[in-house]
Design a protein around this nucleic acid. Structure first.
Ligand SMILES: [Mn+2]
Ligand SMILES: [Mn+2]
Ligand SMILES: [Mn+2]
Ligand SMILES: [Mn+2]
Lengths: 222, 222
DNA sequence: AAATATATTTAGTCAAGACTAAATTTTAGA
DNA sequence: TCTAAAATTTAGTCTTGACTAAATATATTT
């Protein structure tokens, strides 16, 4: 593995991991948008990552990038740091799930492997972070997630919320106020085919949720 | 205050603070040694810090540097981070006092003010770190330390260890094994004027300590 | 199949922060 | 006080990772 890894390289690899989870290469433009870096700069960094020995990304001009095994390991290392940190900020310092992302984004690059092991052990080797995202294992395998988007459910189905994919603090606070957080049981009571709204019952309260929300909540059907 | 502050600038300011505690300006060479950076590079950075608006250091060629009020505030902010982090790593993650310095050295630059407040509160606003160093207050005042170097004590004097100024893990482990840690009561039973060795009683054990050690332990005389 | 629009890459620039080698002070010794 | 040593600064270079503007390749329309 490459001796040192800059914060920048780590952030690129992490984003490439996320963008290629669907199986397709990550495009320069998508990466640029996610990283908030101009496309020209992204091309430059991609070429550098591809030139490392061993290569961290597989790159062909105009065809996007994918991670090599070494790049994937590096990405999973950062993602493990990030998700353990978020979990730990929530559990031990009383952060709420909408406050942890930014902090973890900076800490993830500087903690030691020792620190990583200590917080993992202190938390009891958790498998999911506060948003329900799976935490890569210590040997850097990403567990498989078999959850379904809430948007795919229909009336009379029951489910448990597994994860919420959003880093938008406002949305997270909103969902929290509705009681829509990982672990919570829900039931679908209505569906409108016109706007794809779902009526979701949590406890004794019901809420009508649009696609913008239901595609971001993933559940396990019962 | 300057908008952003790089890790480098923070490390420079922290070292300048430490080197100027005695009242004298910090020399280029001393800074270079402490920072493990070549003197020529130190000159360059000093000039940059002096040119900031507001200036962070007072600098006259060949005369060394001192901190301006703004530079001192920035230094104390980093030192507060460092010492709170060390305390917290020891208290909540089971680090020993010889393991925390390196980790804190990296974390100190990336934690938010929110994080700082949270760990300070969780620790009960501690006044000293695991080495007994005073922690700057939230409003960035450095408490005064009235402790005496152990080397100044003579037979029949009793004292309590306040702080140990060393970042050398080997020395710290050695002192730990001798029971010479902050808070511990000691008594001087012998002194040799030839080599300045002191015989120090801790509990029921006695140890003969040379100047290399006795100048690094600070005590409160009883 | 052109023509246009979009995406991507190249070329050249910049700032930060380090380094080496050479020049210049300052300090200390004889 | 003059000289040699030590400390410090200057000048010029390098790497990293950004940026803009311009060139080129790919995709989408007509
Ligand atoms: Mn996150
Ligand atoms: Mn990050
Ligand atoms: Mn320390
Ligand atoms: Mn540091």
């Amino acid at each position: 593995m490459p001796k040192t890894m800059t914060k920048s390289a780590q952030d690129y690899l992490k984003r490439i991991y996320e963008l290629t989870e669907c199986g397709l290469p990550a495009s320069t433009n998508d990466l640029a948008r996610e990283l908030e870096i101009k496309p020209a700069s992204v091309t430059g960094m991609i070429q550098k990552l591809a030139a490392e020995k061993p290569a961290l990304v597989e790159y062909q001009k105009h065809q996007g990038v994918t991670l090599t095994p070494a790049g994937k390991r590096a990405a999973l290392e950062v993602i493990r740091h990030h998700r353990l940190l978020e979990t730990w900020l929530v559990q031990t310092l009383g952060y709420s799930w909408d406050e942890v992302h930014e902090e973890a984004e900076r800490l993830e690059h500087v903690i030691s492997e020792d620190f990583e092991r200590r917080i993992a052990a202190a938390l009891g080797n958790p498998t999911r972070d506060p948003h329900g995202e799976l935490i890569p294992t210590e040997d850097l395998k990403m567990p498989v997630d078999d959850s379904t988007p809430l948007s795919a459910l229909r009336p009379n189905q029951s489910a448990t919320i597994q994860r919420v994919i959003s880093q938008d603090p406002n949305l997270l606070r909103h969902l929290n106020s509705l009681g829509l957080t990982p672990g919570v049981q829900i039931e679908i009571t209505d569906y409108s085919s016109f706007d794809n709204n779902l009526t979701v019952k949590v406890g004794r309260k019901s809420n009508v949720l649009g696609l913008n929300i239901t595609t971001k909540i993933f559940v396990e059907i019962e």
